[in-house]
Design a binder for these strands. Structure first.
Length: 154
DNA sequence: GCCAACGTTGGC
DNA sequence: GCCAACGTTGGC
């Protein structure tokens, strides 16, 4: 799941009292379908920082509530307001995610791009702008093996 | 249903 | 700030 750290980053999730946040504001059908149809309670997700330096995977979160209507779509004062989404026929959904842990280091997009093991990863597909994307278990495991402490310069 | 115009995302 | 790669909108 992508988020801009300037808007809502892994530190924001960690510092919530419950460490839980509703993932609202998704206004893309493919991303919505991913949340609504594929995300189940207990599923783990990578937390990805976009639009920052460097963009990359920074942590892990867990789905703690499955898809339910996104109320920000009903609020005219919200920047994600969508008048075509009605409370009795909601168009947009969100899930709740809970902080699990930060990675030991940021695994940068530029690094992920260099790994033949990650060929086909949705994040790396050309032109992809989806904010929520699937990760195959094999690739999930592989990415975790990259999460090792970096040696400090002496 | 087509498609031009426009808006958004997000890496660079 | 640029711009590629989308997705959306709306006239026809």
């Amino acid at each position: 799941m992508k988020s801009e750290p300037g808007e809502f980053g892994i530190d924001d999730l960690e510092s919530r009292p419950s460490q839980i946040e509703a993932w609202d504001g998704v206004r893309n059908y493919q991303a919505r379908n991913m949340m609504r149809d594929a995300m189940k309670t207990g599923d783990l997700v990578f937390f990805y920082h976009s639009n920052c330096e460097p963009p990359g995977i920074v942590g892990i979160a867990r789905i703690v509530r499955e898809a339910y209507p996104d109320p920000t779509a009903f609020d005219p004062n919200n920047k994600h307001f969508d008048p075509s989404s009605k409370p009795d026929d909601p168009r947009w959904f969100m899930v709740d995610v809970q902080f699990v842990r930060k990675l030991k280091r940021t695994i940068a997009l530029s690094e992920l791009k260099n790994k033949p093991e990650l060929e086909g990863l949705a994040l790396l597909r050309r032109g992809n702008r989806l904010s929520i994307m699937p990760v195959e278990e094999k690739m999930w495991e592989y990415i975790l093996t990259l999460d090792i402490e970096t040696l400090q310069d002496t």
